[in-house]
């Protein structure tokens, strides 16, 4: 990054940044304070932990927390592994890999609502899967995936949908970092006697590790915000944290509890980011300066 020498006009970059700062202060900073205030105020508007007490005594909160964590630990590892395999495959640059890259990227731009409806289309009682299985005599009656008491089936449909929808997200991060590894490193490894596996474990893996870690973090954070897919496919049968924010606000009009749920999501995200940043450091990048 080269800069013009502008000693006498060094306020310019700050001026360029000013609109952003004002905007972020107004539409992120201020609402954030407002959210804090809401979460920590009682019905009469006094400061207190009342909302948190109400929340922890509500079994739905614990269920929502549990479900969110379940989804997280099922989806994220699978997603990262799948995405890494895909990225390695596409990065081998076979003929026509650009087309494959394009196809894998399509879900990137799809909304969770759209993705949920697509999987509903497949898994509903009149959906393609049931019709197909019945047509060829695998089953006699449709398998129901959605509805009361079937939340464990819906859970797996949600997992599949999220895998389909969000694996490409991890995939592009990893592919970008694979593409950045200089070919020279592998050629040097060839010359100095590395086997295929040694190249993978001693060059590819350590050099993509930073991206792998940040993909892991991003997916973890996003998993706490998962909403559209779950809400459309199971409603409140599988309560989740973000869903409860929506439910408290839109259905019950309880702004304070909604904000409290939101606060807890934010808190978890901040703690995870902090743990991540302190625990995982990449030496060869850290020591640069």
């Amino acid at each position: 990054m080269i800069s013009f020498s502008l000693r006498e006009k060094n306020w310019i970059p700050y001026l360029l940044f000013l609109p952003v700062l004002i905007y972020l202060a107004g539409f992120i900073g201020y609402p954030l304070l407002k959210a804090l205030q809401l979460a920590f105020s009682s019905e009469e508007g006094k400061f207190g932990l009342e909302n948190f007490i109400t929340l922890t005594q509500d079994s739905t909160f614990w269920k929502a927390l549990k479900n969110t964590l379940y989804l997280l630990i099922t989806i994220v590892p699978l997603q990262v592994i799948l995405a890494f395999l895909l990225a390695l495959f596409v990065n081998s640059r076979f003929k026509g890999y650009m087309t494959v890259l394009y196809i894998i990227s399509i879900p990137l731009a799809l909304s969770d609502v759209s993705a949920a409806l697509m999987s509903y289309n497949i898994f509903t009682s009149h959906g393609f899967l049931n019709k197909f299985l019945m047509k060829f005599g695998f089953i006699e009656n449709p398998i129901y995936f959605f509805g009361l008491g079937l939340s464990s089936r819906a859970f797996w449909v949600i997992v599949l949908t999220e895998l389909w929808r969000a694996t490409p997200l991890v995939f592009v991060i990893l592919l970008a970092s694979l593409q950045m590894i200089s070919k020279d490193y592998f050629e040097a490894a060839d010359v100095f006697g590395f086997s295929k596996w040694q190249k993978f474990f001693h060059i590819t893996l350590p050099l993509t590790m930073p991206s792998l870690q940040s993909a892991l973090l991003i997916r973890t954070l996003f998993a706490f915000q998962i909403f559209g897919v779950v809400w459309l496919l199971s409603g409140r049968d599988i309560p989740i944290l973000a869903g409860e924010v929506y439910y408290q606000q839109a259905e019950l009009n309880n702004f304070r509890l909604a904000a409290t749920y939101g606060f807890i999501i934010a808190l978890i995200c901040i703690i995870i980011s902090w743990v991540y940043i302190t625990l995982l450091r990449t030496k060869h990048l850290e020591m640069e300066r």
Binding site: M1, I28, A35, L38, L217, V245, G262, F263, I265
Partner: peptide, 29 residues
């Protein structure tokens, strides 16, 4: 295009907002 004091801080600030679950702001907004 510019190098200026506080640049890294601003960059970090933007990255932090990127990571933050902005959806929770819907209620206060």
């Amino acid at each position: 295009r510019y190098i200026f004091p506080g640049k890294n801080f601003l960059k970090l600030l933007i990255l932090a907002t990127r990571m933050f679950p902005l959806m929770i702001l819907a209620i206060p907004l």
